[in-house]
Simulated assay, not measured.
Amino acid sequence: MTYLRTAIINFTLLICTLSCSEKKDKITKTSGTLDAKTFEVLGESSNMHYKLPDTLNLKDTLKGYLIFKSKFDTINLNGNESHFINFYFSKTNSISKNYQEFTEQPHDTFVRIYDSIIPIYDITFNKTGSQLFEGYVVDYFYKDHTNDSIQLKIRKQHIMYRVFIK
Rank of each mutant, 00 (worst) to 15 (best):
N86K: 13
Q131N: 10
L52E: 00
K69T: 09
D122W: 03
S90W: 02
K29G: 09
I95E: 07
K23H: 12
I123A: 02
N80F: 11
I113H: 14
D115P: 03
T12I: 05
I85K: 04
Y88K: 12
S82D: 12
S94C: 05
N57D: 08
V41L: 04
Y88F: 13
L56K: 01
S19D: 07
I117Y: 07
L58H: 04
T74L: 07
T103Q: 12
I117N: 04
L42I: 08
I27G: 03
F39T: 02
L77G: 04
S19A: 15
E44W: 05
L18M: 11
T55E: 05
F125W: 07
G129Q: 00
N86T: 09
T55H: 12
D60R: 06
L52A: 00
S21D: 12
Q100T: 14
S82T: 02
N10F: 15
P119H: 00
S116E: 08
L18V: 08
D73K: 08
F72E: 03
T109V: 08
T92Q: 01
K63R: 10
S19T: 14
C16T: 14
K51F: 14
P106K: 07
N93V: 07
H49P: 02
F110H: 04
N98D: 13
L77K: 03
K24D: 15
K63A: 10
E134Y: 03
S46C: 07
I120H: 00
T128I: 13
S130G: 09
G79F: 04
F84C: 06
L58M: 03
I113L: 15
T55N: 09
L52S: 00
T30W: 15
I85S: 05
V41T: 04
A36F: 13
L66S: 05
I113V: 15
N98K: 05
D35L: 03
G129D: 02
N98F: 04
F84Q: 05
V137R: 02
M48R: 03
S21M: 10
E22N: 10
G32L: 15
S96G: 06
I9C: 06
F68S: 01
T124Y: 12
N78G: 07
E44Y: 07
L34W: 07
Y65Q: 04
I85D: 02
C20M: 14
T38Q: 05
S45F: 09
I85Q: 06
L66Q: 01
C16I: 15
S70C: 00
E101A: 15
N86M: 02
L58A: 01
L14Q: 08
S45K: 15
F84E: 06
K37A: 14
L77M: 00
Y136H: 04
I27H: 11
T17W: 04
S19C: 10
L66V: 06
T38H: 09
T55D: 09
A36I: 13
K24M: 06
H49I: 11
K63W: 06
T109G: 02
G32V: 10
G64Y: 01
D122Q: 06
N10D: 11
I120V: 05
T12Y: 13
D115Y: 11
N98V: 08
T61I: 12
L52I: 02
V41Q: 07
G129I: 02
K23W: 11
S130Y: 02
F87W: 00
I118N: 01
T109N: 08
T103K: 13
G129R: 01
G32D: 14
L34M: 14
K29F: 14
K127H: 07
I118L: 02
E40P: 02
Q100L: 10
K59N: 15
D60N: 13
N80L: 06
I118R: 01
